[in-house]
């Protein structure tokens, strides 16, 4: 792969996944600044490791595996540096202009509910629900067993359901 081919391929991947990767980083790290840093590293690593992407059909798995590793590394580094876990400043989150007040409220509650989940539950849930990965793919990305992934997602949803029951019941 020449440098130009590599760049072309990267641009395609970036255009397809930039928002999704950033969303994943934000919700896994629960820290917007950290997520921005991780986001940069994910795409730099992806560019550097593009030659390892053999199967085009699995580019999402490949990219989110990088994203996951970078998120975990960043979280570990933050723990090591004793950095305070700053809650995500949702007020500063860019929101779609069409988003209504009610929707924003609902999203706000959902974000807070996700924040309350243990990290491994949250990660599995985000991969499943944000990205629509199959359970088997999540097991590959996270390195967990299939049954473990099922349990994590199930428990994450149970917890979200208990927190968000009013929202879920009001949904038409």
């Amino acid at each position: 792969m020449t440098e130009r081919e590599r760049r072309k391929r990267f641009d395609e991947i970036y255009a397809s996944y930039d928002r999704r990767v950033l969303a994943y980083c934000i919700y896994v790290t629960s820290d917007r600044d950290l997520a921005n840093d991780v986001f940069q590293e994910v795409f730099v690593k992806a560019y550097q490791a593009l030659h390892t992407l053999r199967d085009q059909d699995k580019e999402a798995n490949w990219l989110f595996r990088i994203a996951r590793n970078e998120c975990l590394n960043a979280l570990k580094s933050r723990q090591r540096s004793d950095r305070r876990n700053i809650p995500l400043d949702y007020a500063s989150e860019p929101v779609a202009e069409t988003e209504s007040l009610a929707t924003r409220d609902a999203h706000e509650q959902l974000r807070k509910a996700i924040d309350q989940l243990p990290q491994d539950y949250r990660e599995a849930l985000l991969l499943a629900e944000f990205e629509g990965f199959a359970l088997k793919e999540i097991a590959e990305i996270t390195g967990a067993s299939l049954s473990n992934v099922k349990v994590r997602i199930h428990r994450a949803k149970q917890k979200l359901h208990s927190i968000l029951e009013p929202i879920l019941n009001d949904y038409e």
Partner: peptide, 27 residues
């Protein structure tokens, strides 16, 4: 419903232009 709402949450996220510029500059 939960799945839909989570997807909606994801779709709300926009990549800030300065972050995008930084990434592309590095690339």
């Amino acid at each position: 419903v939960l799945s839909l709402k989570l997807r909606g949450l994801r779709d709300d996220v926009q990549v800030p232009s300065d972050l995008q510029s930084t990434v592309l500059r590095r690339i």
